[in-house]
Amino acid sequence: MRQLVILSGKGGTGKTTVASSFIKLATAKTYADCDVDAPNLHLIGSPFPSVKQTDYFSMPKAVINANLCISCAMCRKYCRFGAIVKDKTYKVDAASCEGCGVCAFVCPAKAITMEKTKAGDLLLYSDTDNTVFSTAVLSMGSGATGLLVTQVKKQMKAASGETPLAIIDGSPGIGCPVIASLSGADMVLIVAEPSISGISDMERIIGTAQQFQVRLAVCINKYDTNLLQSSHIESYCRTRRIPFVGKIPFEPMAIKAINQGKYLVDFPCEGAKALADVFAETMDLLQAEVV
């Protein structure tokens, strides 16, 4: 099974529109939304008949037993993450706690234990034709982490059977969740935006993917909003021998499609045509033998 991960560095470039269109064009049976801070992929397409929910546990977090606590504040002194707060008694702010265990170690009263904390729900949607869609919803206060992205992908792979292609909608940024989504990727498609800030963001996500030696390709979305910057992106790719798989014009139908929860490629329009071309180029590259 080949894994195609779609990233953009910055949000709002149209990553999810591209990912959802690819899923429709590929009639992909396996896909995942790893952008768990702001999951959107489930809003496109028809609802799935069944879903399996699993608890997602993050790092065990520190819990202070108020009955044993002697209020010496050693925990607060040693905590480097500002996770110990005083509110009549000393408490751990779970959202800031990184689970390092230092407070439990230093507590003279042995009042602190590390406890498994549910941080969200892993969701695995499936259909009668063996299509699987993996995603997650975070609990309030929890953050998207590399671990969660890994669990979303693991869940997808375990349910996927013998499909040739898995499409993963990744998160914005270049940090831990993005790096986790690069693991196991056969190729990354970067959706770039033709603006000065968009190019700066694109360069940083390219730098990140290259550091992990993952195959890359770039496409431009809404290219006609700035032809000058679009041409800069194309020359950037040419100079660095990064495969450029095409450009998609700004498509007013895209908003309509999103708001109706439909795939853009189902609407006859310029954007849909261009997306189909970018898809074809990407698939050719993906299927080509890795040297």
């Binding site: 831990c176 790096i179 986790a180 690069l182 693991s183 196991g184 550091q211 992990f212 030696q213």
Partner: peptide, 10 residues
């Protein structure tokens, strides 16, 4: 060897 994925490799 694939690069360390900050400890989150598959």
């Amino acid at each position: 060897f694939h690069a360390g994925f900050l400890g989150h490799a598959e």
